[in-house]
Design a protein around this nucleic acid. Structure first.
Lengths: 350, 350
DNA sequence: ATTAGCACTCCAAATGAATGAGTGCTAACA
DNA sequence: TGTTAGCACTCATTCATTTGGAGTGCTAAT
């Protein structure tokens, strides 16, 4: 903490701030000019040399300016940024229209964020494995199939057409619906264990095999795309020359296109967030829980709808991204999401 | 047609074939060596000069080899390719698992095709506006909402939580379900016109306003994401140096990420396909019905499930893509899709 | 403690020569 | 008449060289 005196902090701040804008190594003369410290370039040079020894900056080669290291960025995010720039950026209210399908809401949302930050953005819909079953319904579709609809808390709806092996008249269907609802309502997927399953099958009597099919389908349906990921703004990385050469860009976009990889990433971020008890997190370079983000930073906001139902918004960009802007945006979004989606749960009678 | 004698055609074929592989302008000496025409480079030079005059090839600068023009490609696709290479490439049976949700099937499919062709691929789920309503169901969710489920032909399911303004007991719900199903089953969205709507509202009696909400929602639900587009393999363009500089790549990926643009494109392709009565289409460069594909070719297969229900698979790549491989792949996919999805409709009793 | 001054380093952009692939043309040949 | 060998010419690419400038580190003066 005392490692850096005020002047060094000021200089480090100026270096990073300037570098964030330009992406070019910044030299002593520049700092001397842009700050109002009234120090000559020579003095700055001495200080910067110290900062380099302490590991906050490096110069890419002998006669270049200095570039922040991960440690430098970390210090900036943790200390400098918070202290200096507490000017509250205007909070834009995002239109969260809950009457739309969830899917569509998230599509709009992710594209809004990508646009606001001008960075590649991903967002995970709330993981529904921890979400509770609100309502289950089987209905007649045609002779060979029944339609299974499962409504989860937060009005997430999943449906599937299930082929039926045996005949099933209306009354039987009614009974099955009753059976399923009385046993499963209010439970999370994790709570639907083998014991319960066999109990339901017993109770189903002659319909034991159709119930089995239905239960399998429920498990499938709920878990199959647990962690649905939406992305947008991938091409924003081309705004940063340091990431746009074709090798790097291709590698990055490959990752960004692979929803499964992103889901893994988000999973780890959520675990992390739980551990640290923070909603907003910044991963600089190697800090990110993923292999291929060496040259990038990741900023995430994990929103929490209670009952362990969580989702994450993530932004990936160059290390020299505008952390402040990104962080205010995300934290803003996070609280709005929590408010809106929680409010929609207040409606429910359960 | 007589414009090109056999020898010229052979040479043009060799030029294009070679260029498809290398992406480099190809010179007379190369052609002289790789063909078994036993012609000296000088002769080839003369012929190539003629081909250039006729507009089938150009040389990018004075001392470079020749590169096919759009006209050259067109001739290749229409004439040369068909004649020469009718070796049937092995037809791989793609796993089309219809028990999965449609959504997931298409996701798998598009990624399969992208992988098989090593090109950016998009696919549109069958447009459901022309699809028929099979089954409608309202059910109780909680005090303030009802759940609306619409099953279309081909077992495409759409659902939505509809806020209800007035109380609605079980019996009323039953009556509404009857009413909606008797009036709407078997109709396409286009056939649900204003006259019909007011007729239903009349018949609904006291529930006229909830019926209105429901009907609006149906219209919305069906049309909102008409033409859902799935994409995959976007980063494959980086395999082609001529498209991987950051300006071009960025522009391309921007387009490819924008699902609305792609939907427009697919729409026009489908119209086109109808006009020409072909399922498989090749657009070379400017031929494509879109602004930003100047440097690319687009190959599409429009599958037709009957009753005007159509969808399109599209592949976008450099002009020098492997047309044969791509076209056999698509035509293969097309027929399998048609078979599988049609088969699933045979199940239905309507 | 700060600063001016200077030598030194190294990148980046500019210049220019060498290389080589390819063409067009002409003249010779079958 | 069609084909080919030969030659002069063009132009992109590559590589080494030069040059300019930005920046540093060090030293000596304030």
């Amino acid at each position: 903490m005392d490692e850096l005196n005020e002047r060094k902090q000021n200089i480090l701040y100026a270096v990073i701030k300037y570098y964030l804008e330009t992406g070019e190594p910044v030299g002593s003369r520049t700092i001397s000019k842009i700050t109002d410290l009234n120090l000559s370039s020579a003095t700055i040079r001495n200080e910067m040399s110290d900062l380099e020894d302490l590991g906050y900056v490096v110069s890419p080669h002998t006669s270049a300016g200095r570039v922040p290291t991960d440690k430098g960025y970390r210090f900036y995010v943790d200390k400098l940024m918070a202290e200096k720039d507490k000017e509250v950026s205007e909070v834009k209210e995002v239109m969260l229209n809950q009457t739309e399908r969830v899917e569509k809401v998230f599509k709009q949302l992710v594209s809004y964020v990508a646009n606001a930050t001008q960075l590649p953005t991903m967002i995970s819909a709330p993981s529904i494995t921890k979400n509770r079953v609100k309502f289950i319904q089987l209905s007649y579709v045609d002779d060979k199939n029944v339609l299974l609809v499962v409504v989860m808390e937060g009005n997430v709806v999943r449906n599937r057409v299930v082929p039926k092996s045996s005949a099933l008249d209306n009354e039987a269907m009614l009974r099955l619906n009753m059976l399923l609802n009385t046993h499963l309502n209010g439970l999370t997927l994790q709570e639907i264990n083998l014991g319960l399953v066999s109990k339901i099958k017993d109770a189903a009597g002659e319909f034991t095999n159709i119930v089995e099919e239905v239960l399998n389908t429920i498990a499938d349906t709920i878990s199959e795309d647990d962690l649905e990921i939406y992305t947008s703004g991938a091409t924003n990385i081309f705004k940063y020359p340091e990431l746009s050469d074709s090798r790097r860009a291709s590698a990055f976009l490959d990752n960004f296109e692979d929803k499964e990889d992103l889901a893994d990433l988000i999973n780890e971020v959520q675990i992390d967030s739980e551990k640290r008890g923070t909603g907003l997190q910044v991963y600089i370079g190697d800090e990110a829980p993923s292999k291929n983000l060496k040259d990038c930073s990741l900023v995430t906001a994990t929103y929490d709808l209670g009952n362990g139902v969580k989702g994450t918004i993530g932004i990936i960009g160059p290390k020299r991204m505008d952390y402040e802007n990104v962080m205010t945006n995300l934290s803003n979004l996070k609280s709005q999401l929590e408010n809106t989606l929680k409010r929609s749960d207040d409606n429910e009678p359960i």
